[in-house]
Design a protein around this nucleic acid. Structure first.
Length: 943
RNA sequence: GCCGAAGUGGUGGAAUGGUAGACACGCAAGACUUAAAAUCUUGUGAGCAGUAAUACUCGUGCGGGUUCAAGUCCCGCCUUUGGUACCA
């Protein structure tokens, strides 16, 4: 029996054995006091959804696991942790529907996830697990919030400082000369003013400077659901759930002044090893634009409208002004005759989502206010319009319309018959002048003849001279809304006294979520936490009770700093100890999807910079190197059934039917193999009686070879399409090592691809073939011998080692897997069972297939884990080639091959090539124009 | 709409500007077997000619361009896909 076990590759036993062993002996324990160089590999932690882990999740985890193991074998102390982003909407939604506390659902889901993860053979040190929804963790999220509350951004020092430095400044000098990121509506005050203000007034003022503050901002309010919705929960102005109307409503929200960091977030990108694509996305998101603010006086009214433009050079081409529908001044601008129309338009436009307003460029909409403004350059009278393509959140909410050089302005002017004035030379005759946006100025008085750049400079100095505006840098980036009208998030550790927020004392933290009767908002639209009874902050001295903040923190709060907590996950005194932080520093490798490109990755950078400013950490970028893994999509299986009949039709046969004769149905991908349906499994797909009865008389019209073929469709992996593949099933059927190899073999890590179990047999076969290099499967004999390897065997091994080291540095895991396959194929052909070769092969493979290699390593007689052995390097001497078979091409088309010594001089190669029969034939007696010889590559004869 | 990415055989994919299709799946034929599984061997982009070895033509989403040479570089499109600020 024992013999039989050893005879063939038996992954189920081996994998269980080693997973238990590693756990028992703490093989992957991480040491914060190590003397080794460190390597920190991190995955974007998962949201533990109720659906459990699907095969898409582990893709990135396997990649980091491979890197972690590779680095450990290369002499590094490796931190490779895992945890859960466990606050979130799905658990809350489930709680609303069922009344079950989201903590319960979350706990269950985390258990499922951990159970699934543990079977894949990751080297996590589970002692460092974190959960963002646990009070031990969110205590520190709350403390970071408090630090942000206690800070202001000083542009003079270019960093966040404690609010006390600002108070000192106010006490000495008032707020003159304070160069801070703050609210717009600041009034000037002196030191004496400050001292005379009441405590309340002082707090009010400070709130305008704090890095987190309270402001009104627009949200998608759904009165019927009594809740705020995300943009993607809104479809065509209606809620996705229930289809109720949604309106844009201003709500008091906590905000964070991320815009203070806009420049640093932009500059910081330079030194990061992130893909250019990702950096570009962040740059565009931050959207720095250098331009000019310019004042337009409204005719016959004491109103000035300030517009922001990056193209002040086109000022003479302005034919109208446009305001965002949210602009507060609209009421004053609207003339009596336009009042009805304006109000109608504003109500309509305000309730459109930003997405809609920007997407529908073809349908131009807007309304005339009845008022006019004066162009400060030309004194021309121009109409003032309102249009929803102007967003209130960007710039000043006022745009100067230049139809001749802006596409949206052009469409707008055309639609409303507004004049179009050409200001760039060459556009006069063009049907669409916006196709030429830069060039020499015309029709622009003193700007005439200047190139765009110079015209901008001259116009700006004119603006300054006349005091009608100023040069201005604008960012597309907006301050981040930090409130959520939800239950399942971190409570904001703040209470209110006379409408002013005060911090809950540190010793009272964590401020935990109170129990409430139902998890939805109150009838009058207050967040769920307003339902909590007797949830107040009690002043220790006076015994007075003050209400807590009722909104909770957003999903990004907990995930913006979690990488720090892993360094010192169980520290009750600090969010991370100095020692741990100084050892681990930045994350060396961060792997996750592009869907986080601008959300999570920008917020984490923001918080890291803040924590750096305040001296809590000593680096200001969290993730040094980042790799984006592609999405794993589902590959749904489709079958056809005749409409109204209990007859199923093979996909090939289905082509002969009319489309409306057949019904297309999704079928569970787990009962389909290589696009062929397992009919028996289908009959037992569902347990209920109706199904069983129906299946008794079901007919299956099969195709070739009596097989029932299915069609397929690539779409999101989701329960409802029956295309979810669970890693547990794959492991049970094949093995964890097979799954790991296959996920890597599927294609480049960065690329999105559909999951298709077709092909997984190949990686399983590879592992069995590897096993057969060690064991004779027929008689169970151990084949490994202590013999001296031949040059061919050494070459095969070192080709692999070279490729593996090179490609792992490029994260090209898929090509490494093929290199393993090639070496095992070659060694099998060579009948190589030599210890010196196989031992190193195992080490090279260990990061990818940790179980089988550990087992065979032990069988080779090793007493310590292969994962703590030293990774072998390659030696060039085994790889040297003396000659090369050159492809010989004529005019770029390969016609023959000739073997040449690599040292052979070019002239001799040329002669021999020209003498070759096949080349002679192609020359047809002509003399070649030239011959190109690229050493070790190719020869090209040009006729 | 805007920003980002991708498009190569029946399938997943490989290819420092230098022999397109490595490696693997699938399929076909054969070997072993009473049989099946497993394993092994051979073939497999399309077209065309040939009994055959082989030769030639076409071929990396579409249309242009640069180059001795383009899947790769440049210009213009098309399709799919991620993000678009309260999904995570």
């Amino acid at each position: 029996m024992n013999l039989k076990l050893r005879m063939e590759y038996n992954p189920q036993d081996i994998e269980k054995k080693w997973q238990d062993h590693w756990k028992k002996y703490n093989t992957y324990k991480v040491d914060n006091n190590s003397k080794k160089p460190k390597f920190y590999a991190l995955d974007m932690f998962p949201y533990p959804s109720g659906a459990g882990l699907h095969v898409g999740h582990p893709l990135g985890y396997i990649a980091t696991d491979i890197m972690a193991r590779y680095k450990r074998m290369s002499g590094y102390e490796v931190l490779h942790p895992m945890g859960f982003d466990s606050f979130g909407l799905p658990a809350e939604q489930y709680a609303i529907e069922t009344g079950q506390h989201p903590a319960i659902t979350t706990k269950q889901n985390i258990e499922t996830f951990k159970n699934q993860l543990s079977k894949i053979g990751f080297d996590y040190d589970w002692d460092r697990e974190i959960q963002t929804s646990s009070p031990q963790y969110y205590k520190w999220t709350q403390i970071i919030f408090q630090e942000i509350f206690e800070s202001w951004y000083n542009y003079d020092t270019q960093k966040a400082e404690h609010i006390n430095t600002l108070i000192t400044h106010f006490e000495k000098n008032g707020n003159a000369n304070v160069n801070a990121e703050c609210d717009e509506d600041i009034i000037q005050f002196t030191a004496t003013d400050w001292q005379n203000y009441s405590k309340h007034q002082q707090q009010e003022i400070l709130l305008k400077y704090r890095l987190t503050f309270i402001a009104d901002s627009f949200v998608n309010w759904c009165p019927a659901l009594g809740t705020v919705l995300a943009n993607d929960e809104v479809k065509d102005g209606l809620s996705e759930r229930g289809g109720h109307p949604v309106e844009r409503k201003k709500m008091r929200q906590w905000m964070m002044r991320i815009t203070a960091y806009a420049d640093r977030l932009l500059e910081g990108l330079e030194n990061l090893e992130w893909s250019d694509a990702l950096k570009e996305m962040q740059r565009n998101w931050i959207g720095k634009s250098t331009g000019c603010e310019i004042d337009f006086k409204v005719k016959d009214k004491n109103i000035t409208l300030t517009a922001f433009t990056t193209r002040i050079d086109t000022i003479f081409g302005v034919s109208y002004l446009v305001l965002a529908p949210e602009h507060e001044i609209i009421g004053e601008l609207t003339t009596l005759s336009q009042k009805n129309e304006v109000e109608k338009y504003v109500t309509w436009a305000k309730n459109r989502s930003e997405r809609e307003r920007q997407t529908e460029v073809k349908t131009v909409s807007g309304v005339f206010t009845g008022s006019y403004a004066t162009n400060p350059f030309s004194d021309e009278k121009i109409p003032i319009w309102i249009a929803d393509y102007v967003l209130s959140g960007y710039g000043t909410g006022v745009v100067m319309g230049v139809p001749s050089s802006d596409d949206r302005d052009f469409r707008f002017a055309n639609n409303f018959n507004l004049p179009i004035k050409m200001v760039i030379e060459g556009t006069e005759t063009m049907e669409n002048p916006t196709e030429k946006k830069y060039g020499k100025m015309i029709n622009s008085e003193f700007l005439n003849g200047l190139e765009t750049k110079d015209a901008i400079a001259k116009a700006i100095s004119f603006v300054k001279e006349r005091n009608i505006g100023k040069a201005k840098v604008n960012f597309r980036l907006r301050d981040a809304v930090f409130s959520r009208q939800r239950y399942w998030g971190e409570p904001v550790p703040v209470y209110f006294k006379n409408g002013i927020p005060y911090l809950v004392p540190k010793e009272n933290l964590p401020l935990t979520l109170p129990e409430i009767s139902a998890y939805k908002p109150t009838e009058d639209g207050e967040p769920p936490l307003a339902r909590a009874t007797d949830w107040y902050y009690t002043d220790k001295n006076t015994g007075e009770k003050y209400p807590y903040e009722h909104s909770t923190m957003p999903g990004w709060a907990g995930s913006s700093w979690y990488f720090l907590r892993y360094m010192d996950a169980n520290n009750d005194n600090e969010l991370v100890s100095k020692n741990a932080m100084q050892y681990w520093q930045q994350v060396d490798l961060y792997v996750g999807g592009t869907e986080h490109a601008v959300g999570h990755l920008l917020y984490s950078r923001f918080w890291a910079k803040f924590l750096f400013d305040r001296g809590i950490i000593n680096f200001d970028e969290p993730f040094k190197k980042l790799v984006n893994q592609g999405m794993i999509q589902g590959r749904s299986a489709l079958i056809y059934r005749k409409k109204g009949e209990n007859v199923y039709v093979d996909s090939e046969l289905a082509k002969k039917y009319n489309e409306d004769e057949l019904q297309q149905l999704h079928v569970d991908v787990n009962i389909v193999k290589n696009d062929i349906l397992d009919i028996e499994a289908y009959k037992n797909w569902r347990n209920d009686e109706d199904w069983q009865k129906e299946m008794q008389n079901a007919t299956f019209l099969t195709g070739e070879n009596d097989a029932f073929n299915c069609d397929y469709l690539v779409e999101k992996m989701s329960k409802r399409w029956y295309n979810v593949v669970n890693p547990d099933d794959v492991i049970a059927r094949y093995s964890a090592d097979t799954l790991r190899l296959y996920e890597m073999f599927l294609g480049p890590l960065e690329q999105s691809k559909p999951w298709n179990t077709q092909g997984i047999d190949g990686t399983q076969r590879f592992l069995r073939k590897l096993w057969r290099l060690f064991y004779d499967e027929k008689d169970g004999n151990f084949l490994v011998k202590d013999e001296t390897p031949t040059p061919a065997e050494l070459k095969s091994l070192h080709k692999l080692l070279k490729g593996m080291h090179e490609e792992i540095a490029e994260y090209s895991f898929n090509t490494i897997v093929s290199k393993y396959m090639i070496v095992v194929n070659e060694l099998s052909d060579l009948k190589c069972h030599k210890k010196a070769i196989l031992e190193q092969l195992l080490q090279a493979l260990a990061p990818f297939a940790p179980h089988i290699t550990e087992e065979l390593w032990e069988n080779l007689g090793h007493k310590t884990s292969i994962h703590h052995s030293i990774m072998p390097n390659f030696e060039e001497k085994h790889l040297v080639e003396s000659n090369f078979e050159y492809p010989i091409s004529v005019n770029g088309k390969v016609r023959t091959q000739i073997l040449f010594d690599l040292e052979k001089p070019t002239t001799e190669i040329e002669q021999e090539v020209l003498g070759n029969d096949i080349i002679q034939k192609w020359l047809e007696g002509k003399i070649p124009k030239k011959i190109i010889v690229v050493k070790g590559r190719i020869v090209n004869v040009v006729i």
